[in-house]
Structure formats: structure tokens, C-alpha cells
Design a protein around this nucleic acid. Sequence first.
DNA 1: TGGTTTTCCGAAACCGGTTTCGGCAACAAA
DNA 2: TTTGTTGCCGAAACCGGTTTCGGAAAACCA
Lengths: 323, 323
Amino acid sequence: MGYRPLSHAQAIRTGRVRAIAMVINSEEPDRHNPFLQDFLAGACEAASALDWTMTISTAKSEKDMLEVLGRLVEERKADGFILPRTEVNDVRVKYLRELKVPFILYGRTGYGQAQTQDDTSWFDISGETAIRKAVGRLVSFGHTRIGFVGSDPKFNYSHLRRDGYLEGLEAAALPADPKLIREGARTREEGAIEARALLRLKRPPTAIVFATDLAALGCYPVCTELGLHIGRDVSILGYDGIPECQYVSPGLTTFSVDSQRAGERLATMLIQQTRGEAPAGLRELSEAELIARESDGPPRLTSEQLAKKIQLLTDHNRGGNRL
Amino acid sequence: MGYRPLSHAQAIRTGRVRAIAMVINSEEPDRHNPFLQDFLAGACEAASALDWTMTISTAKSEKDMLEVLGRLVEERKADGFILPRTEVNDVRVKYLRELKVPFILYGRTGYGQAQTQDDTSWFDISGETAIRKAVGRLVSFGHTRIGFVGSDPKFNYSHLRRDGYLEGLEAAALPADPKLIREGARTREEGAIEARALLRLKRPPTAIVFATDLAALGCYPVCTELGLHIGRDVSILGYDGIPECQYVSPGLTTFSVDSQRAGERLATMLIQQTRGEAPAGLRELSEAELIARESDGPPRLTSEQLAKKIQLLTDHNRGGNRL
DNA sequence: TGGTTTTCCGAAACCGGTTTCGGCAACAAA
DNA sequence: TTTGTTGCCGAAACCGGTTTCGGAAAACCA
């Protein structure tokens, strides 16, 4: 008859407010995530379908993060949490586990640590599989010297994607040259720095796989600067599927991540968990989808020829160095 | 002593849940807003400072929007609402006004309607002032034929920005040519269509002001296609200050909007309103900041010369028309 | 038909706070 | 000293639901 009980009135008796929360870190250098809206749409829709709501908060630092989580728990503004961007050593996980509050991770955690008594639930997209495929794709094009630019090692995904790169090399029986592996590129600018470092090597890679699209986009001005044609002189692959990939020239080949579905699954699984399901049973690994564009292809030059071309152009431009 | 009352227990007596909500439309074609996180950071921070929280929800259609709002009101999940992207005829405003629920607009509403008994509170950034300045800037560069590409007329800001354009022309005593005014460009692709229409005129504009950066970015491939050098053959200005402006070449001159402060002010003013302050007193108009880059400058060609150049290149390319 | 069990339904207790109310002590004025 | 006023503090009522409990009615069985 159109009657809806006041949610806080039921909460007082049931102990559940029928709300999940997510705290996002607002200080990150690569925080301009165009997919936040998609993610929220997925999560909100899933929550709405079960008559739950979604609370959102932001934190400016690690300390602030725990404070915000603590406040939400103590005031009981939420019954569970979605933790995005899991880190290798994640303080949020430790904190919430201790408080015995339900939570779910977007991404896995504890890279390299024994998974003893691990009872966390998570949803993740297998970046390692995608990067392994990226290497396989480059190998099938004929590349034999392939570089990798990773993201910040504090994030768990950074290690997984590097592992995917190494697995790809191993599957193709190619040696892993430590010189070809760079880490810590989160922004366009950092991506540019690492790309430049790789291309200025004595034996540069003819293809580079980037852990994120943003870092890969940083490679574009570097290639212009070095007089290289992306997709022919150097092949580039990214990961994330940000919209910009299709607007740069040549279009960036990347792996597209379905953020909306991620939000949807995370919200659904978290609510299941608050209803008593075992966290360990609530885990899901999904795949990213290859979006082939024009930034990669068969190598036109060998590593040696590439080095010579770069050397030539660098010497030539020495006068007007624009950093 | 570290004690915090359960928020829903106080809510049952006080009738207030100390939460504000925002419902975002997830179906929009230009929904990939990189500033959502900044906006949320501002709003959440302001809310947190007053010990409030922020609830978020998404809606897929206008009908869905009212349903979601209704649910949040009836279950009393929020004490007030932030309504982003106000439309000329905004159903949300009518609905919430009728329900006597506090709300605040991000943007004004009711363009062209008499503001009788208008008791809404809002925060907005004066797009019309920015666009007027844009026209003034182009005039001072020496442009006399300036085009305008507006956004979807259902949004209030679209009309305001067009008015700003007209005011700018009037201030410079330039005639307003209806042929130079286009509307309805929300995406890059739509921006490209309108830009092409303007540049293919018999007497094309030597400068174009776009109501949004996204539409302005659509002009870039069109200029490449027509063989025009942005910033010299044609001047371009955008509005919004999306990060991509600085990565395209030449960099897009635009007006930067402080989304974080917008979120902060909106949340603060909304909470004041729920505490009893009169909505009509809670209004604020802010300004966008000019970010000058290389996409605009003195006209190198007259409109006639520009038309000739475009004609020439179009004829030349007729064989390999790439749409 | 009588006794027992099941079902149904309304009343009461409860959840954890806020707010009101009343009683008592302290203080000021006469 | 008595009376009136103020201040303080603990008890009780209340908010709007959910859950429990008990009694009456209905159904079942011998």
C-alpha cells in the first residue's frame, strides 16, 4: 500500500542499516578515473536491486582513511565496505579484519605472502592474464625484445602484471632482461620518463607493454620527440581501456576493463557476505578484453636499427633539446 | 571517552539521519566525467567536517531518477539532496519541492522563466561570464567572425553560455550571425559535426568558442582533416578544464572549473539548509579560471581566405574522403 | 465430545538513543 | 528562619520499527 518503513527505525532493532560504503583515496596522483561513474553505477544498481544504499567517503591520507573507516563503523553508517585499489600491505584490511566488519576487496592483496588463514573475499580482473596475452601478441608479431613499464609497487596489481609479463616471455622462451623492466609509472609524465629510459638503452625494446594506459599515453610525446612512429618503429600496449586510447593517434591497443560489472559484482558479493555467507567463498576473477588498435604491429626495425635511429635523431636534435 | 552514538538510533528520535544524497544519471552520453572524484572529495570532506555522510545513487532514466529519489526520501536514507546538472525543466526539482525535502542545485534552472516565488538554493559557476570573456579575448586578438557551439539545450547551462557568447559579441559591437551558432554538441563526435558545419560555411568563423571541452576536442580531427592549424588558421576555446586539454596538441585554451570546491560548497550549504536556513539565502555564483594555451591567437587569415583554403583542401582530398 | 496441539493475532517488550519531566538540593530574598 | 526560585540530575516517556510472548481460536486426534 505504498508503505515503506524508515530504514533507521528498522536498523535500531536489526542492527543492520542496509548500506555499504566505499572510501576512496583522494590524494592519489592518478585519481582522475573516468570510470568512477561506471563503477558507482554498477555498485549502486546492484545495491538498489536488493534495497540497499551506497555510502561514499573520501580520505586524504592513510591515517585519515582509518579514521574515516572507524567513524563509519562506530556510527554504524554502513554494514560493509568495498576497498578499492588494494595494496600489498593493506592497512585497511588489517583494520577491518580486527574490527570484524565485513569487507570485500577490488583487487587481491598480500602479494608474495603465504595465504594462510586468508578469509577475505574479493573481486578482481586478471591483469596478469591480459599482460601475458599482450606479450604473446607481440611475440606472434615477431618481437623478441619486449619491455615492461609497471605501476607503483605498493599496489598489488603492479606485481601481478609484471608476473604476467614474465610468464609471457617464458611461454615464448624469451629471456627476461632486467634492463627492460621498469617500475613506478602512475602518471603520463612518469610513463614518459620510463619509456624514454627504455628507448635510450643501447639495445632498446622494439615493443613496450605498459601496466596502465595512462603510462602508455606518456610514451606518445616521447616517441614524437625521438622521431619514432608508434605501431611501426615501436609497438605499444596499455591496460585499462580509458576512453582516451581511441582518440590518440595512432589508437592505443589496450585491454578494456568492465568497471560497471566490477562494481555490480562487488556490491552483490559484499551484501551476501553481510547476510552471513563465508567470505572465502565469495571470490571472483574476471578477464579484461583486448581492444586492438594501431599502436602495435610487426617490428619494422630490429633493436639495433632502432637504437641507431634514436641515436641519430637524438644527436640531430641536441641543439633544441626540449626535455 | 571514544564513545560515538549509533547514528540510526539518534535518527529515530531526531528525525535526521545526518546524511546527504546525490543521484547521478548514468545514462548520459558524456558521463565519463574525470572530475567526479574531485567533486565527491569536496562534498565528502565538507560533510565529514560536520559529521555527516554522503550517500550516492545512480539512475538510468528520468523515471528511474524519481523512483530512486522517492525511495531515499521514504526510507529516509538522506536529509537532503544535491542535484547535479540542472535542466531547464527539471522534474527532480518539481518532485522534491512537492515533497518538501531540502535540496540544492549544482547549476541554476528555469532558464527564461519568471523567477516568481523561487525558493531554491544553488551553487553555480558562471559559464556565461567565462564565455563572454572568451569572446572578448578573441576580439582582442582581432577576430571579428566568431562561432559558437553549444551543448544540449535541455541543460540550463547551455542557454546561459550561449547568452554569454551573445553578450560578448554585443560588448564588442559585433553582429550575431545565426549561422555561426550551433547547438546540441555533448560528445567529441557531436562537437566534430558542428565544427565541420561551421568551417564549411561560405564565410566560416576564424574562431570558435565551444560550450564544453569535450566538444572542442572534437574539432581537432576536423581541423586535421581540413588541413587547418589550430591556434593559427582557426582559434578554439573550450570550457570545463578537463585534464586532456593539456595533452592535445596544440594545448586547448579553456576555463577551469574547481569541482572540489563546488562539491564542498554544495554540501555545506545543503546541510545549512537542513538545519533550517532559508533556501533562498543559500546561493552562490563562482567563476571559472582562464587557462590560456596554444589553441587560440591572432587570426592569420580572414574568413574569406580561410574559406578558400578549406575549399582547396576539400577539393584536393575529394578522392580519399575519410568522412 | 473432550483433550491436545497447532495456528493466528494482538499486546508487550525491546532496540539505543533523545527529550521531557519531576524531585531534590542549593541559593537568594524577605 | 521561611519561602520562592533556580539548577542539577536521574527517571521515565518517546521515537518507529522488530521480535517475542501469551492467550484465544481453530484444527486435529482418540
